[in-house]
Amino acid sequence: MKEFLKIAANLLAICLVSAGLLGGIFIHTEAARLRNEEARLTTSMRRYLPKGAEAAFSPIHRYLVEEAGLEPGVGYLLPTRTGHALLVLDPEGNVLHRAEVDAPLDSEAEREEALAHVLPGARLHFADTYILALGPDGRRLASFISGRTTGFKTWVKLLVALGPDNGVLGLEVLEHEEDPGLGAEIEQEYFRNQFTGRTLEQLARLGVVKLPLPDDYRRCLERSRWAERGLDAAQEHEVCAKFGGEDIHAITGATISSRRVTDGVKRLAGAFVRRMDMVTAAAAKAGLEPAF
């Protein structure tokens, strides 16, 4: 018994020291990590805006709303011409609730407080955030959909950039834990840029093929290396356009990762467009003027 207690105390002490160290480091590093993540997201988004364009990033936060005795709905906290508003819709897009929100909404805590004030007694579960890049006249320059999809091993966090016509401007892989040299190649331009320029209709039909990527297609997809390789941009755009109608070429040795990312992009873009159409129509019905 004495030996048992000694062993248990020994292991407990090691675990406590480890937990204390990790907790301390987490407290000291978390704020910096979040700042870095935000900076990275902003840099990624700016890459898809027209050069020199003035744009303001306006987020739309989505929540699942549960109210006692009522059907659950989806709440959209969106920017309007005069400030912000909360629009709660049922699955068919009918307005369940609308309210102007006049409070600071910069952090998650501020948003929760504001929503609790607007919808007292309701339970709100945060789902995701869409970010719209709006020009000075309120025109939508781009929409950014951040979401995750399953990869080969764990989650893959994606950022899909759509243009004003909902065509794909680009794809960024924000986080993943795929194997280096295999699934981790989803980060590479030659894979990500295969989505660029696809219309929503093309995206809906998009599949994945296990065919080797032609050398000239790969060269045109690696845009950041055009200058270094002395390639002519106009000519490379033509090459990309030639292959642009093809399905996505799977990464060698990582077909599952390629398929999952492709499905993720299709799902995220499709859901965003459907939801935005629904929100725009519902906002008009509810007498709201969205800022986009």
């Binding site: 000694k6 062993i7 020994n10 292991l11 090691i14 675990c15 480890s18 160290l21 990790l22 480091i25 987490f26 000291h28 590093t29 978390e30 910096a32 990590r33 870095n36």
Partner: peptide
């Protein structure tokens, strides 16, 4: 470190250093 729990103790030490480097580098 007690002789009979040395392997779990080593695993905790390795995992701690991996997590420390992961959080430190991310920040």
């Amino acid at each position: 470190i007690h002789e009979r729990i040395r392997i779990p103790a080593y695993i905790i030490i390795i995992a701690t250093w991996v997590s420390v480097s992961d959080m430190g580098l991310a920040a």
